[in-house]
């Protein structure tokens, strides 16, 4: 039972993710993308970073690499797959989740803690939270603005596939709490199966407590 944390050239959160999962007692290891998924893989993380230098569009190159074909098959078979930050960009580019994460509305890189409201607590990723609970996670991205047409976002919300929205500390989903201009303040969403999720904020940086939050622990426990 192993969570494969897929490392591309330019990934830089792969070690942090393995460390966070290991601290929760979850067996995890880094897997170089070109080596493919090991047969014992029971979960996949697409970690943060700048795969392929964000050439063309963030996540575009990694999304079309052979290992992501294997991740797509694993996801279709029910294996939990989590894309974090650059991994979320890869997940959307690969079509594991709808929409796209593109340049922040401010055109600036944002590196800070934000508040997230749990929109759907009935998923493997959010079962440890209460509906509407307000979490504190760090973000660090220049291309985190979620874009999806209003119609498609509305359909996604109706299907309970919006996982988290940026909110203020009181849980109000307002423009002032939206760090990147994401449509509908969307910070994380589900794929066609609820075992597939992507989010721009970093749960692995909110696990060990040494940088100010442990709110990400419950999310990563989906891999237990």
């Amino acid at each position: 039972m192993t969570v494969a944390v897929v490392q591309f050239g330019g990934s830089n959160c792969d070690r942090d993710t393995v460390r966070a999962l290991t601290a929760l007692g979850i067996d995890a290891r880094r897997v170089w993308h070109d080596d493919g998924l090991p047969p014992e893989t029971t979960g996949v993380v697409l970690p943060g970073g700048f795969s392929y230098g964000d050439y063309l569009r963030a996540g575009a190159m990694a999304a079309r690499s052979p290992v992501v074909e294997a991740v797509r098959e694993a996801a279709a078979a029910g294996t939990p797959v989590l894309g974090i930050c650059n991994g979320a960009q890869v997940g959307c580019e690969a079509g594991l989740t709808p929409g796209v994460f593109t340049v922040n509305r401010s055109a600036r890189f944002r590196c800070e803690h934000v508040h997230l409201r749990v929109e759907n607590a009935d998923t493997p990723w959010t079962a440890g939270y209460e509906p509407g609970e307000v979490l504190r996670f760090p973000i660090a991205h220049g291309e985190g603005r979620f874009e999806l047409s209003a119609d498609r976002l509305s359909a996604l919300a109706d299907d309970d596939r919006v996982l988290f929205r940026y909110c203020d500390e009181n849980g109000r989903v307002v423009d002032a709490a939206n760090p990147n201009g994401s449509t509908g303040n969307v910070a994380g969403l589900l794929g066609e199966r609820d075992t597939v999720a992507v989010l721009m904020p970093h749960p692995e940086r909110a696990t060990l407590g040494d940088i100010g939050s442990t709110d990400g622990r419950a999310l990563l426990r989906a891999f237990v």
Partner: peptide, 9 residues
Amino acid sequence: ERLLANPTI
């Protein structure tokens, strides 16, 4: 369609 453009945007 496969790579250069993303039809969402």
